[in-house]
Design a protein around this nucleic acid. Structure first.
Lengths: 133, 133, 133, 133
DNA sequence: GTGGTCTAGACCACA
DNA sequence: GTGGTCTAGACCACG
């Protein structure tokens, strides 16, 4: 695993882990069925408290990104999100509204924002989680 | 002002206020020079403690969105962001990466995300804060 | 930490704390990565309300001097200032104009002011925050 | 008079007035014996509440920059500051320490700070207040 | 243990 | 009237 924690960041460590796993999956660096490192393993690797890793894995399971199987470990899922269409649309809308609003207040033009968004989209493997291999 | 607070939300109240003000400015509903409701007034209106509103206004001032003038009130600024280009680019990139990653994990396709982004962009007045009339 | 508060001062308590921390960093008494006393600890030590210390630490974080990490504590950063060059120049100019003007009205000569400035400069470790050991 | 108020500034108006008068005197634009505009005159000119101007003039009188003579108006003084040498030295030291510390945290080098200081010094007429004419 | 948020209510400074 | 500071004390989130 290639998880990097920035101790300078104000973001809580558990959120940094969550986002890096989500990012790895989105980029296709991890695929459905792949096993995450065990809690203790990852905790040692990135020098954080095991409880913090547990917290991250709980959050990832909550978001439907992984499943935890007793005794076997944690695995990336291929399930599409369990939320209702309405709820998903609402969340997508909120995500984009927030991103655009913040970008506007950073002083960017419409074109610059579009460019950055396209660049972001390019880094994601949309052929879906299970397709690798 | 038409600020709505969801006391159930996981987002802290003060951030909800911050985002709603930023959104109003981005949409052009508020322009440079416009006065925000007074701390006490807004606090009463949305039934929160005045200190919570103060916290929001502090945050907005830090982000260069408003100025707070003792005895006078709080006003939308027309200043462009004071951060360095490097820092702004870094933040824009992080914003977009995060938004795209989250949208991917909600199960949306590239096209759906683009569509939502364009819809978000349409609601922003990019002619900048002072341009209303 | 050796922070001293003058409750008689016209400067607000939280600003006194901010300046003393900034001074300690500038003198090299504190370096990048060093941990500040906890909010409660410092509050007890200097006999002020914890919220007042929180206010100081918020301000220091805004100025990029420290990061606050939930559950972990507050740490001196090694980041260089994120403001644009224009903004930094503007602020430097304003600082110096103000200092010189006030010194003039205290009745000092050009030479005396220069001397005091050089003395001030001598106390700062310009080899930057992280360089201690 | 050439006093300019910046309504975008977070600095209180009365302080802006005080500093602009002090600056004008330091630059030699106003000399000992010169008369300030009357309270009402200045208030009208810069569109502020007369009480605010009164506050500024009080502060300037307090600092020994002007004298207010009943019925005649306010005049620039030529008196050197009334404080004790010890007190003046202490204030000078504090001024410079503060300026240098803030400049350091803006990320400037020793040389850049010296340069800015010299530039600031150049704009001041050290031949003292009464010498013009 | 750490920091983060929120409430309640006081008193001061500015316009 | 406005915002600015400070206290007291509660409860939550993170490591």
């Amino acid at each position: 695993m290639l998880i990097h924690i920035d101790p300078q960041s104000a973001d809580p460590i558990y959120e940094q882990i969550v986002f890096q796993v989500k990012g790895a999956v989105a980029r296709g660096d991890m695929c459905a069925g792949d096993r995450l490192p065990s809690v203790r393993e990852l905790a040692r690797e990135i020098s954080v408290n095991p409880n913090t890793v547990v917290r991250s894995y709980q959050s990832l399971e909550n978001d439907g990104v992984i499943v935890r199987r007793q005794g076997a470990g944690c695995f990336i899922t291929d399930t599409t999100n369990a939320l209702s269409d309405d709820e998903r649309d609402k969340q997508l809308h909120a995500l984009m509204e927030r991103a655009v609003t913040e970008a506007f207040h950073l002083g960017f033009t419409k074109e610059a924002i579009k460019r950055a968004m396209n660049q972001g989209l390019k880094q994601v493997r949309f052929e879906r989680k299970g397709s690798k291999k």
